[in-house]
């Protein structure tokens, strides 16, 4: 089995943050953790090529890096592509997961990566990838590589993958039908029994978890701040130009309000189909308060109302999807130098 391995500049032995701009380097041998990976993979597998790249370079040049990795992996006649493990390193995780997705879809070979649950690479690509749960400590390198190696062998030989907890990968959010001995009622009572006794039990449908995000510092001077309005209430211009769907919306829109003293019902409609939208359609300021914020801009309570409002439809949306929309919107508002956001939710 021929393995191509991706590493960042730190694990690739080039250096720390000061070398994060390093352009991709290709070695026809294992590097750093790749040597250990070679050992745990056993005799029938070898790391034939390693690609090392700086985290900043990867983040800023993902397209070029992806093209290079695809070319090098193909050229090495790889049977499997391994990236990381990345532990908590965010840029590394995002690059590793992105490369795994590209290799898997373009070259159709199995891919394996490893990272901590909290790594943003997990949020982005957990549904498509088998990501070994590496934990946060890089000192567990051997243990993590062993798990990744086991997974590589399993995927390469086309064996069925077991449940996340058994195999040590991060849940992909996929429900599989299986035969069980006990009915749902019996399992439920057993779970309740364990809960009452304070014993351990495992829910079959884990509730989604929302990681705590520390509050950003307050805005020191609102009279100088650029404020944007976002809504998940689905207000869109008449005709819904971006086709934002009524539920499980996969996109968002950004709509010009420059120079407007308020929003007129005739110009807008609501794509959201989860609440009685008549009141907002009568007067969109009830959802996107342009009228009041424009006045507060004129009296200099706020510095400036951002020239566009952002809208999507927040109805029965899978959390992973909502997170992606949030990331995209945040990136755009960051670029527009928005200082604060008022988010209205129906």
């Amino acid at each position: 089995m021929r393995v191509v391995h991706y590493l960042n500049q730190f694990f690739g032995g080039i250096g720390g943050e000061e070398h994060a701009d390093t352009e991709p380097q290709v070695h026809d041998e294992p590097v750093g953790p790749g040597r250990l990976l070679g050992q745990v993979l056993g005799e029938n597998a070898q790391v034939v090529r390693t690609i090392v790249c700086g985290d900043n370079y990867a983040t800023e040049n993902m397209e070029a890096l992806t093209a290079l990795v695809l070319e090098q992996t193909k050229d090495a006649q790889a049977d499997i592509f391994v990236a990381g493990p990345c532990f908590e390193a965010g840029r590394y995780g995002v690059a590793a997961a992105g490369l795994c997705v590209a290799v898997s879809s373009e070259l159709d070979i199995p891919v394996v990566t490893g990272m901590a649950q909290e790594n943003p690479g997990v949020d982005l690509h957990r549904q498509t990838l088998y990501i070994v749960d590496s934990g946060k400590a890089a000192s567990a390198m051997r243990e993590v590589l062993t798990k990744m190696s086991d997974m590589a062998h399993k995927l390469a030989s086309g064996q069925d993958m077991g449940a996340p907890a058994e195999e040590g990968y991060i849940a992909r959010g996929i429900l599989k039908d299986t035969f069980v001995e006990q009915t749902a009622a019996q399992r439920l009572v057993a779970m309740l029994d364990a809960k009452v006794k304070g014993e351990e039990f495992e829910s079959e449908l884990p509730a989604p978890s929302f990681p705590e995000i520390p509050a950003p510092a307050p805005v020191a001077d609102m009279s100088k701040a650029r404020v944007a309005i976002i809504t998940d209430g689905g207000l869109v211009p008449k005709g819904n130009p971006d086709n934002i769907s009524a539920w499980a919306a996969t996109n968002w829109g950004s709509y010009d309000i420059a120079g407007k003293d308020g929003l007129q019902g005739d110009d807008y409609e609501v794509s959201h189909r989860g609440y009685d939208t008549r009141y907002v359609e009568q007067d969109p300021d009830r959802l996107v308060p342009v009228d009041v914020l424009r006045e507060l801009e004129e009296s200099n309570v706020i510095g400036e109302l951002h020239s566009q409002f952002i809208s999507t439809s927040g109805l029965v949306n899978p959390i992973a999807n909502s997170r992606r929309l949030g990331r995209e919107i945040a990136a755009q508002l960051k670029e527009s130098e928005v200082d604060a956001v008022i988010l209205t939710s129906t």
């Binding site: 929302f210 990681p211 705590e212 995000i213 520390p214 509050a215 950003p216 510092a217 307050p218 805005v219 976002i230 949030g326 990331r327 919107i329 945040a330 990136a331 508002l333 960051k334 928005v338 200082d339 604060a340 956001v341 008022i342 988010l343 209205t344 939710s345 129906t346």
Partner: peptide
């Protein structure tokens, strides 16, 4: 948004949901 460092004020009539998802 807040992960990106932009402070957000969440205006909603369903406060328990805002709390559950971690609005600050």
């Amino acid at each position: 948004m807040e992960k990106a460092g932009i402070p957000v004020c969440h205006v909603t009539s369903v406060v328990p949901v805002a709390k559950m998802v971690g609005s600050n």
